[in-house]
Write a protein that binds this DNA or RNA. Structure first.
Lengths: 152, 152
DNA sequence: AACATACATTTGTATATACAATTATTGTAA
DNA sequence: TTACAATAATTGTATATACAAATGTATGTT
């Protein structure tokens, strides 16, 4: 490896590390904000995301494994996370009649209602977080992040 | 608000939410990978970051509060996080002579050694994670993330 | 039918995190 | 100098997360 390649490699590595840290740091920044918004409603970010996934089903029940696949944080314990939502009356869980290993989870009316309340608040918070970026920059940022993750 | 503005606003909100989720999702993606690399060394991401912060001090001891400020995840309990590193012999903690409320933390020789081992592994992993993005795209991504967070 | 295997979820448990309360020390105003 | 507030770190405790093991159910093979 000649000196130019070496320097390039070192530089490449530096920017990789910087980028990785930057993404994690930005994510925390956003999460802190979202968390503060959700807290008064006794919801965590993963719980809120599960409610949104269930709403996205448009009445069709979701299995635990489906929810788990679609979750941002795949490592959380979905059973217990759903437990919390059941306890709050925002989702219902029934054993699947066709396959009793499976469980069917649906969002309840109160669950939909709390999402309806949260929608404008969360979206307002999100656009406030991103207020320094233009529409084009947001499109670009999304494209870069998609490229980063895809084809791996 | 006319219909065009209304549509634009709705669209804006949609992309805000999408972007926020995209950032969190990408961050988890990266963290999973980094975590897998660190696991055999009995290190978590926050612990690794603390070691890096301490190395960055170049011999100068750091207070707990300094570490906390610089950490990616500001919410973790730095006292106990440092405890773990002390137990492993990678950092040392002494009470600050000038101000006994403060504590002075330095990285040890073994701590520096483990970082030296991890440097190329982590950097290799990072550039692998980012392999779909060109140098220019990485620069751009960093700029977008910096803009997002700054001037808030 | 009996058995092994795969699947979907739950449970157990150790560790980590969030956040409030506490302790110890220092700074400062009356 | 005493009293009170501010600072720095630690501790307590409830909850969350990670991950392995267990449970219950279904499917395929001989």
């Amino acid at each position: 490896m000649d000196i130019d390649t070496a320097i390039k490699t070192i530089h490449k590595m530096a920017i990789s590390t910087k980028t990785v840290i930057n993404i994690m740091y930005t994510s925390r920044h956003i999460e802190e904000s979202a968390n503060a918004v959700l807290k008064p409603y006794d919801l965590t970010i993963p719980q809120y995301n599960v409610l949104r996934i269930l709403r996205g089903q448009r009445g069709k029940p979701a299995n635990l494994s489906t929810i788990q696949e679609r979750m941002v944080d795949k490592n959380s314990n979905t059973t217990r996370l759903v437990d919390k939502l059941v306890k709050k009356g925002w989702v219902e869980r029934t054993v699947c009649a066709a396959n009793r290993r499976k469980v069917e989870i649906i969002i309840t009316k109160p669950g939909l209602k709390i999402l309806k309340v949260l929608d404008p608040i969360m979206e307002g918070n999100n656009s406030n977080i991103l207020k320094n970026l233009s529409e084009e920059q947001l499109v670009l940022l999304n494209r870069l992040l998609d490229t980063l993750r895809n084809h791996n």
